[in-house]
Design a binder for these strands. Structure first.
Lengths: 139, 139
DNA sequence: ATTGTAAACGAAAATCATTTTCGTTTATAG
DNA sequence: CTATAAACGAAAATGATTTTCGTTTACAAT
């Protein structure tokens, strides 16, 4: 966890009990979480904790690169622990909601295609893959 | 527009003035629209038109494949006209919000990578590319 | 150890996009 | 022309996310 505490300190974010517990919760699981789910789990440890606190912390974690978010059709926020800096993408299991990093990025090729086809300059891209993870497809 | 009217008829959706006008508005532009923006433009033609109607029609258009939606950080809905059936992806200009289709899809390769790396079965994927379009980068 | 201060927090309310309900109107097939 | 399923508007509901603000806390400096 020291890596995360360092990242917090570098951004002038304090190592508070709520932040520590949210990190602990997210480290325990490979799934993505909604703010509400995190809140429910936080309440097991703290008698007083507000939902806005959860939203704030998750946003901050995303800003400093501790968590990433996934996109869903219902347009709600979901977060999972991922602080890999290298370009990569995520595979999400439809059934168990596990998130796995996929070491793959075709951005150089995409950039060139966009340049050739449209004359446009590609700056960022977002790729998300969904399906059934190894465990879920076997059961 | 006949193509769209055919698509409506096939799904038992009537060719109503509101649907016709929304199609006309979206055909006029290469940008994506929020439901609110569509509503504002609709109100120029109809004195009485509800925002839920706009939401309903855009949802239906998406379901039958007349429009696609894009993902933004603010988690709001944005739609643009696209009824290409072939696998492809979209380039979005950060500045003018124009959406262009990119004839490219690496899904077979992604499927194989996911299989090899994770043992998981990729079923769908979502790729969105952002940057500056030809016109905006030149100005 | 004490203190000053910026950061964090909780509670409550606000915001705001989106959806639902329901009674009325309309498109269109027969 | 009529029947009927679909569409619509108005109003209210929903529900996720954010803001405000007064209080508390972490922690660096003393």
């Amino acid at each position: 966890m020291n890596k995360y505490y360092e990242m917090l300190k570098q951004q002038n974010l304090k190592k508070t009990p709520k932040r520590v517990e949210i990190l602990r919760i997210m480290k325990q699981s490979t799934s993505y979480f909604s703010p509400l789910e995190i809140w429910d789990l936080l309440k097991e440890k703290f008698q007083k904790v507000g939902l806005p606190t959860v939203y704030r912390i998750l946003q901050q974690f995303q800003e400093i690169g501790i968590v990433s978010s996934i996109q869903k059709d219902n347009n709600q926020l979901y977060y999972f622990l991922c602080s890999i800096r290298q370009d990569h993408h995520h595979f999400i299991c439809r059934k168990c909601h596990k998130v796995s990093c996929v070491q793959y990025c075709d951005f150089d090729n995409i950039k060139q295609l966009v340049e050739d086809q449209l004359g446009s300059k590609a700056e960022t891209h977002f790729l998300q893959i969904e399906g059934l993870c190894k465990e879920c497809r076997e059961s």
